[in-house]
Simulated scan of single mutants.
Amino acid sequence: MDSEKALELVKHGATLLFLDVPQYTLVGIDTQIFAVGPAFKGIKMIPPGIHFVFYSSSTRDGREFSPTIGFFVDVAPSQVIVRKWNQQDEWLTKVSEEEEERYSQAVRSLEFDKNLGPYNLKQYGEWRHLSNYITKDVVEKFEPVGGEITVTYESAILKGGPKTAMEIALDTQMKKSKFTTSSTEQPKGNRFYYTSIPRIIKHKGMSGQELTSMNLDKVSPLT
């Protein structure tokens, strides 16, 4: 890619500016992931539209990671989204409107350009295919209050049934994590709003074949 084309993509693409993120933290967007180095301050050249941003804090030696936290964004051309690392809670938090405007101007002036990793446009097609049915309305309907999504608040999904090796490993990781709340009741406002799917679907006037088909493929409650 020549320098003029790259500059055009930088100016017209959206930018995620992440401040004070510790080294070794894993930061990702869509199907891409970055290991934070000493100079990393975010991601540039992001195409407009819906994206999923996620991150996982690390121990100082970069060998162990916390449960992933993520959030959806719907970015416009040239938009800058600013988040700052909260050292105590190890979360990316929003900044004030005044700070966001100041940092946004700095990004548009290319002051942070050398510290921003480029969005890999070769992988964008894969993300568009995966997120084809995710719209802003869908995100707003299901995302938790505040928009932060983490399995820490979804511990109920690991209870009451057989566990795979992956689920056992996740359960162990969550118990060790400082993000896991000590209360047996997880904050409902921080949980994803799932659609309730009945265990058995019954409808009068339907044939046995239709009922069997509907119970095998329970798509109807989701439409």
Rank of each mutant, 00 (worst) to 15 (best):
D20M: 12
S177D: 10
K204I: 12
E4G: 09
I33E: 10
I200E: 11
K159D: 05
V10S: 07
Q173H: 05
E111H: 15
L16D: 12
F52P: 00
V95M: 05
V21G: 13
L121C: 06
F40H: 03
S78V: 05
T93I: 13
K204A: 09
I134R: 00
L9V: 07
K94S: 10
E185F: 05
S213H: 12
F192Y: 14
G42P: 05
L19T: 03
S213V: 13
G160I: 03
Y193M: 14
E64D: 13
S78W: 02
Q123M: 09
L116D: 02
E64V: 05
T15Y: 13
E210N: 12
L130H: 00
A106D: 05
T68S: 11
S58Q: 15
G13K: 01
F65W: 04
K204P: 08
K114T: 14
Q186E: 12
S66M: 04
L7R: 08
M174A: 07
V80F: 04
Y55I: 04
E185D: 15
L19G: 03
M174F: 08
D2L: 14
L121Q: 06
D20E: 15
I46N: 00
M174V: 04
I33N: 00
V95L: 02
G37Q: 09
N215E: 10
V107R: 09
M214P: 08
D2N: 15
